[in-house]
Design a protein around this nucleic acid. Structure first.
Length: 569
RNA sequence: CGGAGCGUAGCUCAGCCUGGCUAGAGCACUUGGUUUGGGACCAAGACGUCGCAGGUUCAAAUCCUGUCGCUCCGACCA
């Protein structure tokens, strides 16, 4: 490709809309352009990089034995009703109506479609295992699209769905995908850490997320350098002591705490009750019913764990009015002492705690010398707290670390939730009808592309890994007059590299050298071949790896040298 | 949806508080010239419903009301 023939609208200045470096570089390098919030056009260069990521995904999925197909993005709502997700996922579902006013949904994912397909086509254990995948545009009505391609209303996803006859086979399918994902991200030049993940609204048994460590990531992962334990904070546990038995010291005593509404305020003079001696009382509405959630004062609630403990994802923090109606006090003065009307969920760390201080359910008052069990009836004990950095690893006891990360892939063992709901049944060896055991596996392809940039750039621009670079070599002649020796040499190298199957772009723009150098670095081509009069007079051209040092080489050897740098193809 | 901020040329922004001349700058773009190894220079030019609607006023980019859009912080996810 000749630079002058394509469109690479690079920008010197950063558009005000971009906040994180990868988004800025996507725009500045002319890879994408925004249509409106959360919707982007892939420019010619951006599309080339995207296609390379897709191709890596395709090759590894094929290698893992998955079968590519393509399902409709437009879906009938009835299959969503059948799976029970029409309500559960209704927040993210884009709904449209046809001319007869019938409603349709734009697919945010395809469990319903693939399971419906399999229900009709697979009837015997002999036809399994099967794993189907597609690379396709998904639509999600995101509450807040942000960071360019990171969270968009429309994005490209690779989604795969495995169907197995037995649990062991399903396990094997899962591991195949896990391994394929590891290879995919490796080939994209991405460092990822697989972490244990919460299964959320997908349902299912267990899952792993593939995380790209990045300060701008929207997730937090907890990991242990010593033993390799790694989990999403939503899922992570640690070996903090469960609770310390204490002798109850005297009866509950009410004392005035005018204006004290926070754990912190109570921990200061004149009260001086340390946070770990306080009980934090949170009020949630779970399926429209009030529940009380108790944590130690210095702990934070992990909502994902609460969802697990309650067994419902339909929950929200209660409003102040609802709380007042239920407990007769406002947030800041709440407690569970003597409360029997509402179920009380408590974090394990409070087990057997005594000598605690908590709200009196009367504004301006707290209670001291509170003992769990004696004064508070806990209906359910569970791990509800958010793990914090430095706590001992539950596997090996070494201190845990916490790091932000971008989720680029997610593998789930689903079980039979969808196959039961949508009747994907088969006859097993014994002639008995069984629901297929499913797994589902997603990669955010467009997000992966941006994650590569987030992880691989410098002050001058993107540093593409060879595997996903839109062009791997950029030839930069400093004189583009067709009859000049410089341009003729450029043309010769261009033709030779192209003949060898290299993706090469020839910067034939009649611009000053500085402009061309800056642009090639901003866009981030892995290798630049600079050709100018001065060096060519010595019979040399200059090879500049994007992340390495300038190497003068004999002009005749340039092609071989480039090939060697590309891994000797 | 709650909180914060911003909408002026393709991009980055000034002007608004304290209303008043023909609405500005830099980059990008067009033409001509000089340049040519790290985002050149000179000259001439083209580009604006000041987000939109209404109001106040002799007069609105500027003040008021409404509305739409975008960005950031929270709940959701690949």
């Amino acid at each position: 490709m000749r630079w002058s023939q394509t469109l690479i609208p690079t920008l010197k200045e950063t558009p005000a809309e971009a906040e994180i470096v990868s988004h800025k570089l996507l725009l500045r390098a002319g890879l994408i352009r925004k249509l409106t919030g959360g919707l982007y056009t892939f420019m010619p260069l951006g599309l080339r990089a995207l296609r390379k990521v897709e191709q890596i995904v395709r090759e590894e999925m094929d290698r893992a034995g998955a079968l590519e197909l393509l399902m409709p993005a437009l879906q009938p709502p009835d299959i969503w009703q059948q799976s029970g997700r029409y309500q559960a996922a209704s927040d993210v579902l884009f709904k449209v109506r046809d001319r007869a006013k019938k409603e349709w949904v734009l697919g945010p994912t395809h469990e319903e479609v693939i399971t419906t397909l399999v229900a009709g086509e697979i009837n015997s254990y002999r036809q399994m295992p099967k794993n189907f995948y597609q690379i396709q545009t998904k639509f999600r009505d995101e509450i807040r699209p942000r960071f360019g391609l990171m969270r968009a209303k429309e994005f490209i996803m690779k989604d795969a769905y495995s169907f197995d006859a037995t649990d062991e086979a399903a396990q094997a399918s899962y591991h195949k995908m896990y391994d394929a994902y590891t290879r995919i991200f490796q080939r994209c030049g991405l460092k990822t850490i697989p972490v244990e993940a919460d299964t959320g609204v997908m349902g299912g048994k267990f899952s792993h997320e593939f995380m790209v460590p990045a300060a701008t990531g929207e997730n937090e992962v907890v990991y242990c350098d010593a033993c390799g334990y790694a989990a999403n904070v939503e899922k992570a546990t640690s070996a903090v002591p469960k609770g310390e038995a204490r002798a109850a010291e005297g009866g509950v005593e009410k004392f005035a705490t005018p204006g004290v509404l926070t754990i912190e305020a109570l921990s200061k003079a004149p009260y001086n009750v340390t946070a770990e001696r306080q009980i934090k009382t949170l009020v949630y509405m779970a399926e429209s019913k009030i529940v009380l959630v108790l944590l130690r004062g210095d702990d934070q609630l992990n909502e994902a764990k609460l969802v697990g403990a309650l067994g419902t994802a339909t929950l929200r923090p209660a409003e102040a009015e609802e709380i007042f109606a239920a407990l007769g006090a406002h947030p800041g003065s709440l407690g569970a002492v003597g409360v029997t009307r509402f179920p009380v969920y408590a974090d394990e760390r409070l087990r057997d705690a005594a000598g605690m201080t908590t709200g009196a359910n009367e504004d301006g008052f707290h209670l001291r010398h509170v003992a769990i069990g004696r004064d508070i009836q806990v209906a359910h004990w569970a791990d509800l707290r958010l793990v914090q950095a430095g706590e001992p690893c539950s596997k090996c006891g070494k201190p845990l670390k916490v790091q932000r990360a971008i989720e680029v892939g997610h593998v789930f063992k689903l079980g039979t939730k969808y196959s039961k709901a949508l009747s994907a049944l088969f006859l097993d060896e014994a002639g008995k009808q069984q629901p297929a055991i499913m797994g589902c596996y997603g990669i955010g392809v467009t997000r992966t592309l941006q994650a590569v940039i987030e992880q691989s750039h410098d002050a001058n621009g993107i540093i593409w890994p060879i595997s996903v670079a839109p062009y791997t070599v950029c030839i930069t002649p400093l004189n583009v007059a067709p009859d000049s020796p410089v341009m003729q040499r450029a043309e010769q190298i261009y033709a030779a590299l192209t003949a060898r199957g290299v993706d090469v772009i020839l910067d034939d723009r009649n611009d000053r050298p500085g402009v061309k150098f800056k642009d090639s670095e901003l866009v981030g081509f892995p290798i630049r071949v600079g050709i100018g009069e001065k060096s060519l007079a010595k019979g040399e051209v200059e090879i500049k790896p994007r992340a390495g040092a300038l190497m003068p080489v004999k002009a005749e050897e340039a092609v071989e040298k480039v090939m060697a740098l590309l891994g000797g193809r």
